[in-house]
Design a protein around this nucleic acid. Sequence first.
DNA 1: CGTATTTGACCAGCGC
DNA 2: GCGCTGGTCAAATACG
Length: 255
Amino acid sequence: MENKIGSTTGDPTWDFSSDGCGGIAYLYGEGDGGGHGWAPPRIHEEDPDTWCSLPPPDLSEASGSAAARSGGDAVSSSSSEGPPADPGDKPPADSPNNKTSKKVQKRVRQPRFAFMTKSEIDHLEDGYRWRKYGQKAVKNSPFPRSYYRCTNSKCTVKKRVERSSDDPSIVITTYEGQHCHHTVNFPRAAAVGFHDHIRTTSSLLENISPPPQQQQQLYFPATTNLQSVPELPTVLPNDDGLLGDIVSPGMRGRR
DNA sequence: CGTATTTGACCAGCGC
DNA sequence: GCGCTGGTCAAATACG
């Protein structure tokens, strides 16, 4: 099932359960890498059939092309895809069925990427601001799943956060869609950050090759909870280095 | 007061 | 058709 690609002791292990394009690709570390309670995030791309294509590199086209790319079920929707016209832009309450009309629109599934991160904190900081809009108990898991939406009104990105039922210390963060704006706190990340990191993931998925260390570092600043930064012995050499460069000190103390 | 979170209800999709 | 489950809404509440 899983097609392990790269495995170096002590290093993150790339584990692509994919047959080329389809399947789930994982990046995960061995244990917590030394009792720090943290391990490199696992990454997987969900819904291989649907998300085989790489995510749109350009956000200006993300909505449309992503939807189109998403395959047949791409239906224009304001609820999850949201044209630039403000997703929070709720349909006018012109009818009691307002709610219904919103939901009637099929949920559009955008490319999703999940990161499995060993962390005690559920909501991993990634430089964007998220608003929690729901929480659900999920089947086969004692832990609830939380639903977040990017607070940027023009951004339709959502993410789900849940703990692995197998390993409660692992947080599974699933991103859906792509940001159409820069990070709030990561000026630099805005340039090379999350989207690139997604793209990196994608290229990896595409190339099916183990990631160089450099690429790992692309992930972490964007996906790692900053509170755990001090627990990043190798990935982030020093607090005031990469993170200090892109994250305001105040930010680090948050959440 | 503005923003974020909580939480129950509602709805759609899917399997049986 | 029915029940289950996941996903979302939105009012109420909490927080800074």
